[in-house]
Design a protein around this nucleic acid. Sequence first.
DNA 1: CACCGGGCTTGGAACGATCCACAGCCCTGC
DNA 2: GCAGGGCTGTGGATCGTTCCAAGCCCGGTG
Lengths: 339, 339
Amino acid sequence: MARRSGKAPTLATVADEAGVSRQTVSNALNSPHLLREETLARVRRAIDVLGYSPNRAARSLRTRSSHLIGLRVEPATEGTANALMDRFLHSLVESSNGAGYHVLLFSSGDADPLAGYDDLLRSTAVDAFVITDTYRGNPQARWLEGRGAPFVAFGRPWNEPGSTHPWVDVDGRAGVTLAVEHLVERAHSRIAWVGWQKGSYIGEDRRAGWVDTMHEHGLATSRLSARGDDTVEFGRRAAQALLESESPTAFVCASDTIAMGVLHTLAERGLRPGSDVAVVGFDDSIAAQVAPPGLTSVRQPLEQVAVEIVRLLGQRLAHKPIEQRGCLLTPTLTVRGTS
Amino acid sequence: MARRSGKAPTLATVADEAGVSRQTVSNALNSPHLLREETLARVRRAIDVLGYSPNRAARSLRTRSSHLIGLRVEPATEGTANALMDRFLHSLVESSNGAGYHVLLFSSGDADPLAGYDDLLRSTAVDAFVITDTYRGNPQARWLEGRGAPFVAFGRPWNEPGSTHPWVDVDGRAGVTLAVEHLVERAHSRIAWVGWQKGSYIGEDRRAGWVDTMHEHGLATSRLSARGDDTVEFGRRAAQALLESESPTAFVCASDTIAMGVLHTLAERGLRPGSDVAVVGFDDSIAAQVAPPGLTSVRQPLEQVAVEIVRLLGQRLAHKPIEQRGCLLTPTLTVRGTS
DNA sequence: CACCGGGCTTGGAACGATCCACAGCCCTGC
DNA sequence: GCAGGGCTGTGGATCGTTCCAAGCCCGGTG
């Protein structure tokens, strides 16, 4: 289709080919309703013949918008079962592309975590950001808000009452409720919780799902809860301690990483996961999918998260009235061999 | 530092502030050696005071280069233990940023896998591409080459004798050799191979590492090899069949996914991985790291791959003479509980 | 018949950076 | 004293697109 010529075709080239002016071609692309049907068809034919695509730099210079969305990739943490980002990223890229945007990745140098944002913003390289780690008193949200930069957060503004930015999050509490209900149905009553330190808002939210649901079913929680780091090793030790003192028949974990540690302990003690002791993780990571008996896990609807993020971003960038500040999605439970 | 003003500062603003002309400021940024030391200092101070960053769109329009590198994200394949991309991506982003580039992600619509490339190229949105799936007669490399678009491939041009593009790859054969040597040292002699179908170049390369090393040590390979899909299920069945007919004492697998399947089978039969039967995977995925006894696995130096890719890309974009077409890196072996 | 107004189209300016050719300047050498 | 050459610094033009205000053509109206 595209006619190969020495130089890349521009608006002027197309205008020449179609026998109209530049502006008419521009209108054909941006406001086709302004053109007479016949003219529009002729211009479109010319575009096709020449294989024309508008130059992004020029468009972006003039309109002051790059149609790029910035996303910072965190320094990789190995040993944690967070293939989360993988799934999320795929979906974010697809949703963005569907909305005419592209995703630009950047890493912030070791020094100032805000430097990357600042640079991209000042050079008008991106139209907006998606931020993904709002949990730990992270300064990004506040800083971006202060600067008036558009962004959508994956994660609630837990401890920021003054914030007004749009966000999308997954209801961890509801996810854990699903897990506990599932285990109760399977006739478990001594269900232990293995989760994170108290400082984590996400951790407390998930834990609340366990506490509430246990109490709803009239089950005791005292002495059945362990807290620690998000590591395999902690899961291992916590399971050992709990098994020795409280002999629970099921474990609900704040993450797949921890659940893997619990599985370690079961294996060491010759207990068969699923039949002897049930285990449920959180994240539905790849490890959950492929590790031996298959780990039952709470699955975050990351695909939908990405879709919602792009939707909110679109609203924000179109300066539409914000009809909705937050969006809370409910996870599902993927049942596998360990329960 | 940055003085907050209504509009974003431009070259002209900075020039005014410093009492010089636009071009002088431009030179201060792009060819500082042209300026007298004192002038340079004054300009830099002005830049600092105003918080100026050059507008990327304008620069890119003029220089015809966006300093963006395009990377297509593949449709996610769940159930496979390939958190490869995660590690690779992180490293690629960091290396690129170090070299003044950013990574732009795109997904190709369901229809034409080349559409995304074509679009970005015609709209001059990216300077170059990184392609990651050269294995299966993929048309991208050939198409990009035909178009004269700069790119570097992660993966050798296995079946493309005519190709001349730069590439970086990991020596899978050497990786499997490491695995087999390791097992031989551990006094194993009946070492089985569980790998992919014949069609896969990568698969055959890795398998050759097993065959060669076995023969070097005077060990037999016949009937000790199984081929199939890259799934947990295949690994499971292959291990069952091999254990029944040939009773190997060790398995070397073409991927961690397959290795996980082998571990399934061992668990079903009450065999303890590591002490009864050794298993080695390939990729050092997260699953390998966290799954119960810890899976010994061949680890690809993805960080280094990314660094080399960016280096080659830099050479290509600077129109330097290409000193090196391909770059083959050697993986390492991460020893864990299963061996 | 002159005038008006709406639908399409037009040329010119603007976005902000870089490239180009040239104009000062200072210094050296004859 | 003056020509010449190496450094710095200058204004104008340019990249390709979109915004702006004005122009053209046409039928309808007083």
